[in-house]
Write a protein that binds this DNA or RNA. Structure first.
Lengths: 340, 340
DNA sequence: GTTGGCACTCAGGACGAAGGAGTGCCAGCA
DNA sequence: TGCTGGCACTCCTTCGTCCTGAGTGCCAAC
């Protein structure tokens, strides 16, 4: 039985607790929020909310603190995205538009997101596996040293150096370059790697070994998912505002070192779908005191990566959610532009 | 007047304080280190050391703590680099040898260094400005969209997209590619940028605009020192071991966000020259409680960047210095190999 | 120059009392 | 049936006090 006023009380508790970081009592509540009822009434509601597990009392004679379940209800039913101010919108636009390449977009996004939310921000680099091949370039540094450059639709550039057993002449290299690009251009890298398999058979016999070596590193670069696991982290200094060092800061600091952990934290929410994971809802018991607000990004609903913020369960969900969504949308748009 | 035994006492104080994080008294000293004299004698020495400013007493009836000046003396006169264990050497070798490209080298180094020293590690990406041009590649994605790829001797790859006003034919592009590489290959980028200036004049008149645009982004990429300011940071979780949150951890966390600050912290020590900056000796008064152990790295005495660790003044200098030097040497070697 | 002895200092923990915020419950009222 | 004021109760927090113990400085003796 959760009537409207009780929801109002819960919202007020969450807002006050987030603002003050202290358990909030019935009297302070009616004063700060115009609830129109007496503290005694609020106390009754609080008792009910506590029975239902939405709030919790650290000890008798203390105020109430939202539980994870309480935050969940708040996020699901009560929170409206705090609209971004014009200044914030402008900051997002100007900062991200100034990015010169893909890495720069990611790094600027992290910085931006951490400044907007005053939380720790995480941005996953766009995954390689879903992107398509834009161009392959082969450069003979010497007749036996070939630099293989793989340019992807996301703007990512992968490079590999191949040492050949025997020299390759420019004409053959040019021919190989053309055929490689014919087979792969515009193709998703997973399929491109497969398509390349048969290629070495079709070149001049004497050059088959060289072709095989080059195609080898190329397919390896295409199937190398190292970059899938790359994330950028920013705003760590915001952890300093946390009250509780041992339960909140330390485990999070440790998690931030492990990019695999971060990726799991971010999850795989769809583009434009905000995921909020509160405290124990997450995959790591050590991070029971932290929440994650994340979303996917990518042009036209294509999920290229995720970004979000992590912070204490006691965080400003409406603000964080709005900032995460705004930044994600902007990043998606930029990736789209660079891609057409 | 600093005689031998007083130096021994200072060393013992530093070592004990680093190990225990607690002021060390005369009795504990003679017990833990076989000084061969009585506590009373040690007390006399301590009083003298305090007069000279090497140690300090937080309050009467407390033990002694080294001052920055004391650490300085310790590092200059008393510390011998703690030799790396065979296992550590092996770890360095196998981890760094597995790196696939330049970014990977940097990232692995950071991780390695922070694990070896249990401190926060900082590695500067190799500066662009001192490296030479290995190759320039021009790729026509469409007749008016040219991808310019700049490959440097350090293995760094910079890419820029140029939108041309009028189409450029393949033959002209090939010609331009050849002349650009003729002028720049093997040349330091600062000089290469200058050398490119005259180039657009010498092409077929109809293509001068295109050539100018391409050369423009190329010189811009060469003189873009953005990457000079890039650093990788790792081991932040080690901050959790710090005792004093407000004076030590918070300012450092904030500094870690500002890469410019970090670069200034690292300084510009020469290759193979260890710099130790203790507490207030550094450029930032907020970081008076942290020390930096850093060194330059690069092949054959050519300074390409710096790396090091930052931590509390109360840190294991011999161990950190040894680890920093070992990693720097290994990184230098790898850069040298990739370069020949 | 070194040592044992001794008085002195002072941070930090233990203990207890006072204060205060906040609650739960109850009886009265619309 | 639901809201309200009153009141007794709980228990955290703060503050002052006391006490202990580590560590010192100094001195006289060796």
């Amino acid at each position: 039985m959760v009537d409207d006023r009780k929801l109002d009380v819960l919202r007020a508790i969450v807002e006050d607790y987030v603002a003050t970081e202290e358990p909030v009592g019935s009297k302070a509540l009616v004063e700060r929020h115009g609830l129109g009822v007496s503290p005694a009434t609020v106390r009754n509601d609080m008792a009910a909310l506590e029975d239902e597990g939405y709030i919790h009392q650290p000890h008798t004679s203390a105020g109430r603190v939202p539980t994870d379940k309480g935050y969940r209800l708040f996020v699901d039913k009560l929170a409206t995205l705090k609209p971004m101010s014009a200044a914030e919108r402008r900051a997002i636009a100007t900062l991200l538009d100034g990015a010169v390449d893909l890495d720069d977009v990611v790094q600027r996004s992290v910085r931006l997101l951490s400044q907007l939310t005053r939380q720790v921000a995480i941005v996953q680099y766009p995954t390689l596996s879903r992107s398509t091949v834009r161009h392959v370039e082969l450069v003979a540094l010497t007749p036996t040293r070939i630099l293989v450059i793989l340019i992807l639709s996301t703007g990512r550039v992968e490079q590999r150096l191949v040492e050949l057993d025997e020299a390759v002449v420019d004409a053959d290299l040019a021919e190989l370059r053309v055929s490689v690009n014919q087979v792969t251009a515009g193709v998703r890298i997973a399929e491109a790697a497969a398509a390349l398999g048969a290629l070495p058979e079709n070149v001049r016999p004497g050059q088959a070994d060289s072709a095989r070596a080059i195609v080898g590193v190329l397919t390896e670069a295409m199937s190398d998912h190292r970059s899938d696991e790359r994330v950028a982290v920013g705003g760590t200094a915001n952890l300093a505002r946390y009250g509780d060092f041992d339960t909140a800061v330390r485990p999070l600091l440790e998690a931030l070192e492990e990019h695999v952990v971060l990726l799991k934290l971010l999850g795989e929410s769809g583009v434009d779908a905000l995921t909020v994971r509160i405290g124990h809802e997450g995959p790591y018991s050590e991070l029971a005191a932290t929440s994650v607000v994340a979303t996917g990004y990518g042009p036209q609903e294509l999920h290229l990566g995720s970004l979000g913020v992590v912070g204490p369960t006691r965080m400003d969900y409406p603000g964080s959610m709005a900032a995460v969504r705004a930044v994600a949308r902007y990043v998606s748009r930029i990736l789209d532009e660079g891609n057409q």
